[in-house]
Amino acid sequence: MNGILGALLFIILAPFLGGLIAGADRILTARMQGRVGPPLLQPFYDVGKLFEKENVVVTTAQNFYILAYLAFIIVSGALFFAGGDLLLIIFAFTLAHVFLVLGAYAVHSPYSHIGAERELIQIMAYEPMIILSAVGLYLVSGSFYVGDIIASTVPAILYLPGVFLGFLTILTIKLRKSPFDISTSHHAHQEIVKGITTEFSGATLGQVEIAHWYENVFLLGFVYLFFAFNPILGVVAVIVTYVAEIFIDNTTARLRWQAALQSGWGVAAILGLFNLAVVVYIIGGV
């Protein structure tokens, strides 16, 4: 019962929260760059405008793929907030991105194709670390169920500092921020224009944006899991994490895809696996 309520709240509130986060992000980014920045509600205005645009589509298949992308992002987020199985959530989340990639492949544009290839590389780069994070949380709380992890009173972060740092690294990839905004970035100033989303426009692009809001809320929820033993600390940690990501975004150049892959797997192997090994063999579980 509680689960369904959580899922419903997520489906209804997440876009608002996600949009507000995006708006705050833009203001903070602007301030870090010495600019004023747009109003807080600008992301909503943007998406609203996108939905007003004429629907210009070369390949109608892309509409289906993007809708599927949005649907599966919502499903994975809803499962998460319903307290579902973390592994299932991660696979639904990955499936969503596979649809996004398929959507980009459905159009005939070299920019979009290269963006799609890079997105695949990014998925490969962050997937191991996300799974290790789930495994780490399992080791600490004894369950893959989000509901149980939240209910657990064990301070996960103390046992999993390496896993958490690794998760932060791949969070940069997921939030599409420098240095890892290689498949698409929040503006079209890169060699592949806007990468994977180059060929989406109007309502389709609006859906991608909304999916991104859902995704951000879900990912920040994931961050919260590491601090679930203390809700206040958890919320503070989520905010600090996000501000840190913006800070990193503003102090680094974009790297190449090779570096994204190396970093993703590097943190998984070094921070993630080492941390897990310590938890399993030295501390001997919780």
């Binding site: 870090m32 760059q33 010495g34 420098s178 905004d181 100033h189 503003n250 102090t251």
Partner: peptide, 13 residues
């Protein structure tokens, strides 16, 4: 140049 390598803040500065 900073913008070309995706370093927006450096561009602004």
């Amino acid at each position: 140049f900073a913008d070309a390598m995706g370093f927006e803040n450096l561009f602004m500065r």
